[in-house]
Every structure is written in structure tokens, then in C-alpha cells.
């Protein structure tokens, strides 16, 4: 077996874990795009805020003498991150997007970029005052590592318990979200608003409330992803949201923007392709792979894998 083939299983495995994180963030992009036709550029930074909230909670809980069980730690971090970022997302919508509903796309984009800058430096400011530094190491939650020996592979496949937890948590959240959107009244209202805002309003749906709810849920998912990401990659910085945000957006596009299962599929696909592509043509071009996928999908298949065709000129 050639050495590239030897590494393939591990690359795919690692790609899956990253992919699930992308997927969780992508959901936020896709939901907001669904209801507002807006690329929420600040979403990557909402994710970053989630990572910081999660990290701070972990720091606080591990600082004392008797450590909690890792499950409780993780739950606390994820819930706190989701709660804070949900409110943050709704706040961003209220302040930066709602006044601009009728404005041209570019204005919204600039407003979003403004929010993004603001969040990055605000987090930095807060952490600088609080801890005197803003690049924070993250306390370890699950230290367990499994090594699986596979016949024919020279090296055991390595997988962390933490990775498994990230994947399982992602799947749980996705299932929850799908049920919420498909089965509950607010969820159905959300779909109605995404379909046709005016008609939804005529049917007595409070469109503003639904849009706020969309931001609440999408941002909360992004924030939870931030906390999970922090436990997985052990370092958080205020500027980490941009690259990951772009990749998650790519994932949303690949799956078909506006489509929740699509975002999930796109995230996993992107994560794996990026890892495998980087493994074969060199990590130097790992990001080129991600961006090339973005460009190719948009140009050749603008509706994504599962999405509906975007109406032109409407």
C-alpha cells in the first residue's frame, strides 16, 4: 500500500470531525440566508464569541480545587456559549440588519463586516482587561484517546474521546434543529417566512419575531460550535472566526444555501475533501482546495447539492 493510501483513513477521520464543526456553523449561515437572503458575515465572529464564552466557563470551572466531571464541564460550556451567542445574534439582527431590510445587499454586507470587526476587538478588549492577554489556551475536557489498530495500516487510527463527543453533540443538535423546524409552530413559521415573507405576514405571522428567532437559533448553534471547537483545538484567539467562517459558508453553499440538511452534508464533505486534498497536494494548498471548491460549486452548481435554484432577477 502506498503511503498516501496508508494515511487516507486517518485523513478522512480527521476531516469528519472538522466537518461536523463546519456543519454546525454552516447551519447559522444557511438559516439566516433562508429568511433574509443575507450572508451574515458576522457569523464567524459569533462562533468566535462562543469559543471564548466556552473557554471562560471551562477556565472558571476547572480553576477550583475539585474538578467536575468532564460531561458536566462540556455541557456547561456549550450551554453557556449557546445562550450568550443566541442573544448576541438576535441583538446583531436588531441593531445592524433590521434597519436595513430595504437597503441594497452591499450595505448589509458592509454593516455585517462592521459588526464583525467590532466583535473581534471587543472580545480582545474584554479579555485584555480581564486576563491581560487575549490568546487563551483552553483547559482539557476529555483526555482519553482511542487507538484502533486496523489490519493493513502501519499506524493505528487515532481518535479522541473529545472528537467523538463533538460529533455526537453535533448530530444531536442537528436532529433537534430539524425537529424544531419541521414539527413546531415557530419552526413552520420560519419556513413560511423563508418561502415568502409578504405572504407569511399576511397570514398573521410576526415576521420580525421569526427573523429574530432565526438569528437566535442560528447564532446559538454557531456559539455551541465555538465551544466544541475550543475543546477540540485547545487555543482561542479573537481573530479565529474569519477563516473558519468562510469555510463554513463554503459548506453551506456546497450543500445548497438555505437548506439545513444541505449545510450538514456540505460541512462534512468540505471537511473531508480539505483534509484529503491537503494530504495529496500538500497542506500549503489546503486552503486553496477549500476556496476552489467554493468557486467551482458556485459557478457550476449554484444551487448546491441539495438546494433549490435561486431565482434570478426576482
Amino acid at each position: 500500500m502506498s503511503s498516501t493510501l496508508q494515511t487516507l483513513p486517518q485523513l478522512v477521520l480527521d476531516g469528519l470531525v472538522v466537518g461536523f464543526v463546519y456543519a454546525l456553523i454552516a447551519v447559522g449561515y444557511t438559516m439566516v440566508y433562508g429568511v433574509l437572503k443575507l450572508i451574515n458575515f458576522a457569523h464567524g465572529d459569533v462562533f468566535m464569541v462562543g469559543a471564548f464564552v466556552g473557554t471562560e466557563v471551562l477556565r472558571a470551572l476547572t480553576a477550583g480545587g475539585r474538578p467536575l466531571s468532564p460531561w458536566a464541564l462540556l455541557l456547561a460550556a456549550v450551554v453557556a456559549a449557546a445562550a450568550v451567542t443566541a442573544l448576541l445574534g438576535a441583538g446583531i439582527e436588531r441593531v445592524a440588519y433590521r434597519p436595513l431590510r430595504q437597503a441594497p445587499t452591499l450595505i448589509l454586507l458592509v454593516s455585517a463586516i462592521g459588526v464583525s470587526f467590532l466583535l473581534e476587538d471587543l472580545v480582545r478588549l474584554v479579555e485584555s482587561i480581564h486576563l491581560g492577554k487575549f490568546v487563551l489556551p483552553v483547559p482539557t475536557v476529555f483526555a482519553t484517546v482511542y487507538r484502533i489498530h486496523v489490519a493493513g495500516l502501519q499506524n493505528p487510527l487515532t481518535i479522541r474521546l473529545n472528537s467523538i463527543v463533538v460529533v455526537v453533540a453535533s448530530i444531536l443538535m442537528m436532529v433537534g434543529l430539524t425537529l424544531f423546524v419541521g414539527r413546531t409552530r415557530p419552526g413552520k413559521a420560519m419556513r413560511a417566512v423563508a418561502e415568502d415573507r409578504t405572504t407569511a405576514a399576511l397570514q398573521g405571522i410576526d415576521v420580525n419575531a421569526i427573523i429574530a428567532l432565526t438569528f437566535l437559533v442560528g447564532s446559538g448553534m454557531g456559539g455551541a460550535a465555538g465551544a466544541l471547537f475550543a475543546t477540540q483545538y485547545t487555543l482561542v484567539t479573537p481573530y479565529m472566526g474569519f477563516d473558519i467562517g468562510i469555510k463554513a459558508f463554503t459548506a453551506a453553499v456546497v450543500g445548497g444555501i438555505g437548506n439545513i440538511p444541505g449545510a450538514f452534508l456540505g460541512g462534512i464533505l468540505l471537511g473531508v475533501l480539505e483534509q484529503v486534498g491537503g494530504g495529496f497536494i500538500g497542506t500549503k494548498f489546503q486552503n486553496v482546495v477549500a476556496f476552489a471548491i467554493l468557486v467551482l460549486v458556485l459557478v457550476l452548481l449554484p444551487s448546491g447539492l441539495l438546494g433549490e435554484r435561486v431565482q434570478e432577477g426576482a
Binding site: 441593531v95 434597519p99 450595505i107 462592521g114 459588526v115 470587526f117 473581534e120
Partner: peptide, 14 residues
């Protein structure tokens, strides 16, 4: 500067 810049972008856009 990025904070101030972001604030200006946001305020102007809105």
C-alpha cells in the same frame, strides 16, 4: 483601530 473602524462602518451603513 479595527473596533473604531467597525463602529464607523456599522453606524454609516445604518
Amino acid at each position: 483601530h479595527q473596533l473604531i473602524f467597525g463602529l464607523i462602518l456599522l453606524v454609516m451603513a445604518v
